[in-house]
Amino acid sequence: MAKNAAFEILYREYYARVFGLCRRLLGSADPAEDATQEVFMRAYKSFGRYKTEQPFWQWIASIANNYCIDVLRQRSRSPHIFGDEEEELSELQAQDGSVINELIVREDAGALNAAIAKLPDKYRVPLVLAYLNQNSYDEIAAQLDISRNHVGVLLLRAKQRLRSALAADKEAEA
């Protein structure tokens, strides 16, 4: 009974954060709702094994990460959704950092999130894990089953894509 009561409290407290994480990882709200329920369902089943030394957010976020990545893999029908490191590296473009940051800073959060949602899964997922979840490159590499360097390439490509998208939006507005 105590377990149920504790879990209920944690559920109410962390629902929005887990939903937000799932939404960022999956790119839209509808599948995120289902994913959030499933994540809490899985968390409830393994709640007995949860160690209180570990922050609850860290624990449930890892469940959410794993579940959402599985969903994305099933959606793409391929376990290798994050591409090839060499190919990604060859597509890297040199860009002016100051312009990039200026564009990002001037954008409102809503537009920025919309641009993030439009990113392909392979760029959006590491971006979310790195900057929203604050996972290290090693943690991301382990979760996505890719090399550490590949993580760096994907993140850089993700940011470049974002910059391009934001620059295009800015030009359109002008």
């Binding site: 937000g20 960022r24 940051n101 990002i104 800073v105 959060a109 920025l112 999130n113 993030i116 971006l127 979310v128 900057y131 929203l132 604050q134 940011k159 974002l162």
Partner: peptide, 8 residues
């Protein structure tokens, strides 16, 4: 900035 925006 990215973290803040996504964390909203």
């Amino acid at each position: 900035q990215l973290g803040t925006a996504m964390g909203m």
